[in-house]
Design a protein around this nucleic acid. Structure first.
Lengths: 359, 359
DNA sequence: AAGTGCTTTTGGATTGATCCAAAAATAGAG
DNA sequence: CTCTATTTTTGGATCAATCCAAAAGCACTT
């Protein structure tokens, strides 16, 4: 009879070791063991060691679910992106992952595919799982009220890359406006005066910021030529649009692209027309993906540091969880123009210097 | 005094609505509400509706943590990949995500960066979170004993893409051997007789399978030329290795690459030498990433369907969770050669037909 | 009216940790 | 050798659900 109660070898997965068991083994109370596990400074050194020995001896596994039920943290976070197959987001998620891991956090990932409905379902599920916070790259068409809803739910939310709703909110991203300005300045310095902008999702903060940078730069440099082609953000779009554009008269001598994928497409489109990227038309991308350096020609690109954005977003989330009432923060990294071979001076001018304007 | 106990508007996050509250509101017991939530057929239709109305009225949020404590499932899964920034894995994760979401599951993601230590830490954390199962793309250098350890932990584990340890185990992937064979057959049919293989991680099932396909094909077609260049799996490797290879004498007339990234690098390397991919040397990739179709020239590639692999892996995981003692399964998808412009007949022969061998 | 076989519903025990106020042990001062 | 002050330790209540055996309700027979 009493034999039945003994823990059976090799079948431990049914009956798991609990705090109680360790307490008994170490000759202390449940509470003390709990304190040891949470590395409380209250516990005396000798006791701590004794308990830790018992933990090892019994092969104890901490039950985070049980801890979360009584405590206030789950040490989990929800991460929503809209296109995980895009290497930009891959790198960003890698950054998030690295930063969270260091702090003992772990994250649920969802791919919204830019569908607000999918996004909503995932967020509701995250609420049921009692995550400590959310990292959100809002899907296109996200209701701005969502941010307030999450606040009502008591769920800290850090927006990443794009943002919706009214400030103040927590946000981590890059200064896309400044990035485009850098690209434009560089082109103007090389002598370009007809510069087009290629691509950009419909209505989004990240797109608006780029367009703003484009328009501002035109004005600042007193350029008349303005050509802003909206489109989605794929390689194929770049391929198609550049060919339309180069058939116009006058054609641009340079294009700045919404992202690297569009730029790759544009370079390919130029080649398809028998033109040489960087000679017949300068091309600048945005993101500086790994492949940019190995393009043909190597692509000049505005580096937006997705890995770093991910890290910053994760850190910000942890700060907000620690201090939910703290002032909202906006971490905006500075982009950096990575100059390579895809943009030279305009065709008619020599390999001339930084004083623009002989076109 | 008693006013203080009343739930305060707009501050509901401190005191949450529980089953008990709903039971009281609907005039039934806690157990009945629980049954309704789990869609048990035991509950009478009238009762169900009454309870559901109360759930809506009180704005109840299911607490999955509490449910998991008493019940046996957490409806969560751990997913480990080794390079989330690689678009192949991005697509795979998207497939996993889609399949899990449909079943109400949600997944923790970790990026091991091919470090067995990071992988180990994550798996331990997953155990503490009591996930129902693991989808594992084992990091390079993973101890084969890991699979047995996970089994000891009572954690179902589906290996994806690569596998370690002894069969039987659960696995989802592609038949890489067959993929390489398809590529080789195609090249031989076009008249190629000197075909090299480029790239491949050190020791891995997924690499071994490809090499096996290469060697088998050489033998089957009676080819003497054999050149297998090991390397890691990046664009840069392809770029470097192809240039070494083409400087040899005799040089190959075609290369099959470990993945598309290596193939892109190889095409770029050929151009750098003044050669034309698809004319001076045929190139075939593996994976068929989105960018393959838009390469210059468009890349012929063995499609390995990462999204589908992700879906299959997720489905297999759910099956194994439902039936932990069931027979182990290996879901191996068939790859498909996607013919494009990067491989023609060898330079000296005409645009000749399917009867190989005039070289 | 009692008995039979269903379908529904129920309360108490249980899961495994944390919180908290209070008790116990120890150190230091007079 | 007390008495206080400080450091450690503790047990009971609690978190919010599920499990399970038993009770209640209900429709039919007989």
């Amino acid at each position: 009879m009493s034999q039945d109660a003994a823990p059976r070898k090799g079948q431990r997965d049914t009956v798991s070791v609990t705090l109680q068991d360790i307490a008994a083994h170490a000759g202390v109370s449940r509470s003390t063991v709990s304190l040891v596990l949470r590395e409380s400074p209250l516990v005396a050194e000798r006791t701590r060691r004794k308990v830790q020995r018992s933990i090892k001896a019994l092969g104890y596994v901490y039950n985070r679910g049980a801890a979360a039920l009584r405590g206030s943290r789950t040490a989990t976070l929800g991460v929503v992106v809209y296109d995980i197959a895009n290497p930009f987001f891959g790198a960003m998620v890698a950054g998030i992952d690295a930063a969270l891991h260091r702090q003992g956090y772990v994250s649920f990932l969802a791919n919204s595919e830019d569908s607000p409905e999918r996004q909503q379902r995932f967020l509701e599920r995250m609420r049921e799982h009692r995550v400590d916070g959310i990292l959100l790259c809002p899907a296109e068409g996200t209701d701005p009220a969502l941010i307030a809803t999450l606040a009502d739910w008591g769920l800290p939310c850090i927006q990443v890359l794009r943002h919706v709703g009214e400030p103040p909110f927590d946000y981590a991203g890059t200064d896309f406006r400044q990035g485009v300005c850098q690209a434009m300045d560089h082109l103007v310095a090389l002598g370009h005066r007809r510069i087009a902008f290629l691509g950009g999702h419909r209505e989004h903060s990240a797109t608006r910021e780029r367009w703003q940078g484009y328009r501002e730069s035109l004005e600042r440099h007193g350029l008349d030529y303005q050509r802003l082609l909206r489109a989605t953000v794929t390689r194929r779009d770049g391929f198609t649009l550049i060919q339309q554009l180069m058939a116009e008269s006058p054609a641009p001598t340079a294009v700045v692209c919404h992202n690297d994928l569009v730029a790759f497409g544009a370079m390919l489109g130029l080649k398809r027309m028998g033109l040489t990227p960087g000679v017949d038309c300068a091309v600048i991308g945005t993101d500086d993906l790994e492949e940019a350096a190995l393009g043909d020609p190597a692509l000049t690109s505005v580096a937006t540091h997705p890995y770093a954005i991910g890290e910053e977003a994760a850190r910000l989330a942890l700060r907000r969880i620690a201090d939910p009432a703290g002032a909202r923060e906006q971490v905006v990294l500075a982009p950096r123009l990575q100059v390579r071979d895809s943009c030279g001076a305009p065709a008619s001018s020599g390999p001339a210097a930084s004083s623009g304007g002989h076109y």
